[in-house]
């Protein structure tokens, strides 16, 4: 299947993802165009390089390839069941995703 691919975010909307583009970057663009209207909260964007873990997501269906991801956030067992950092995966076809709830220590503390 040739790119661009369709990324469906469960209960939120759709994004268009180009060849060799990080899925999170495609989601950021879609959010900018108002295509992810029903996200429960702002798209979690951190380092975009597989290190910080804020963009954890579960791939519900579709093929993809990955860059290295920090094992502090995605274990081998996680990876085997489709848990990924969305910044470190590249679509190889249409994908369906569920954004994972943030880990408790990743939530921004209330400082006001």
């Amino acid at each position: 299947m040739p790119a661009p691919y369709k990324i469906t975010v469960e209960n939120a909307g759709e994004a268009t993802c180009y060849e060799n583009e990080r899925v999170l970057v495609a989601l950021e663009r879609a959010q900018g165009f108002g295509r992810l209207k029903n996200l429960p909260r702002k798209l979690p964007v951190g380092c975009r390089r597989g290190g910080c873990g804020v963009c954890r997501a579960r791939v519900l269906s579709g093929n993809y390839r990955t860059d290295p991801m920090s094992r502090a956030h995605v274990s081998e067992a996680d990876e085997a069941v489709g848990l990924v950092l969305s910044c470190a995966i590249y679509a190889l076809g249409d994908l369906s995703l569920r954004l994972e709830a943030p880990q408790p220590h990743k939530q921004t503390p209330n400082i006001t």
Binding site: G46, C47, C52, V54, K106, Q107, T108
Partner: peptide
Amino acid sequence: NEAFLSVVT
């Protein structure tokens, strides 16, 4: 920005 307090390695 949201990342200042939450994005660390």
